[in-house]
Design a protein around this nucleic acid. Structure first.
Lengths: 212, 212
DNA sequence: TAGAATGCGGACCGACGGTCCGTTTCGATG
DNA sequence: CATCGAAACGGACCGTCGGTCCGCATTCTA
């Protein structure tokens, strides 16, 4: 338990690296074009600093992703409806997937970098296990999933519908905007789970967080 | 129009390379561990031959994948029900996804290699556009999709449920077998589209093709 | 069988992720 | 403020991999 505060320059460099990496990934369509040396130069540090601070490329991307995701994660674990735990299951399932879609859209290059950094897709990252567990638990509270099982696979399948490369493909290659994407996903989720009681008229309007 | 037959040794080498690559990918859990040099050695040819014949690593994997997929593709375009074009839409949608799942399961390492070879997931490969178009057309014949649209996104979402890395994760990390996977997918598809009229009692039994 | 065209193959190259270690900077201490 | 040990720095360096190149071998054609 001998916790030791990190040195001031170390903390400063860590932030500089995360900021530089965020900037670089956001500005490039292909995450593989961003090299560790690029990030080091942009952050004004040596390459060794990157690897000492984050282990390897995957570790750096995961750390950055986790930092950006944190607000959404807290909104899900502690926040008010429709994301928080006090929401009726059907509405919460919709909100979870919509929130995640928005996040992936707003940080789509970073998300893309994360998913292709890992060896076998995103499935070995801690984030994924958490999302899957959370969504499965919500589905289990739904009448349709009462006891027949299937919630485990359904959670995987629903999460796969918001995979970063799919979002990037639809947003980039096919030119869909945020609104169309959310409408498409919302329609699909409704098909799978049913319509949330509050959803009528126009599409959802929550979570208007801007990229910057 | 001056078609020229390839030289005999070239054709032989081409087959040797495809066979060697198939073998190597099938026997390794991580496709990235298979290098082009490995394949060249296993096939008994020089590295130059690989690149002349297939362009680059992605081209080789795509060619191999397309060759293995060909039977299924023909069954969908020309074959008898439940895969062929003369099948009622609801049953055909189920059969398409089940067939694709089985293929991905039986060739999961190769499929994994394909999906992580491309820059932005599988979405830029011709295969994907074909599957998506086919499935979308089938969905459009379904009452529920009559005119409301949504079939485009739904086709993407359903296909994402059989992505190679998800199949690999469920089969490998979670230890599900073919039967369980098919049951899970079948249940999900039923949730989205409804149950096919022929499905009752035990799960589907079609497409029992063995890996070797 | 001779000559041209086609394909072969492995030495070679540039780039990238990751390591190593001499040097610099921090901050606790008297 | 001066001193000193520890912590962090940074860029030269390394191994590997995808991809290229060109002198040589093999195959087809006449």
């Amino acid at each position: 338990m001998t916790e030791r505060r990190p040195r001031a320059d170390a903390a400063r460099n860590r932030e500089a690296v995360l900021a530089a990496a965020d900037e670089l990934f956001a500005s490039s369509a292909d995450p593989r074009a961003i090299t560790m040396a690029d990030i080091a130069v942009a952050a004004g540090v040596g390459k060794g600093t990157l690897f000492r601070g984050f282990g390897d490329r995957t570790g750096l991307i995961r750390t950055l992703y986790a930092a950006r995701l944190e607000p959404l994660r807290r909104a899900v674990t502690d926040g008010p409806p429709p994301l928080g735990p006090d929401t009726p299951p059907l509405e919460r399932a919709h909100a979870l997937l919509d929130g995640l879609l928005c996040f992936k859209f707003d940080h789509r290059h970073l998300s893309l970098a994360l998913e292709e950094a890992a060896a076998a897709g995103p499935y070995e990252a801690e984030h994924y296990a958490w999302w899957h567990g959370t969504l499965r638990d919500v589905l289990d509270r739904l009448p349709g999933f009462a006891e027949g099982g299937g919630s485990d696979f359904a959670a995987h399948a629903l999460l796969s519908a918001v995979r970063a490369d799919l979002v990037d493909h639809l947003a980039g290659r096919e030119g869909l905007d945020r609104r169309e994407l959310r409408a498409g996903l919302g329609g699909f989720v409704t098909r799978v789970l049913g319509a949330p009681s509050s959803a009528d008229g126009a599409g959802p309007a929550e979570d208007a967080e801007a990229p910057s």
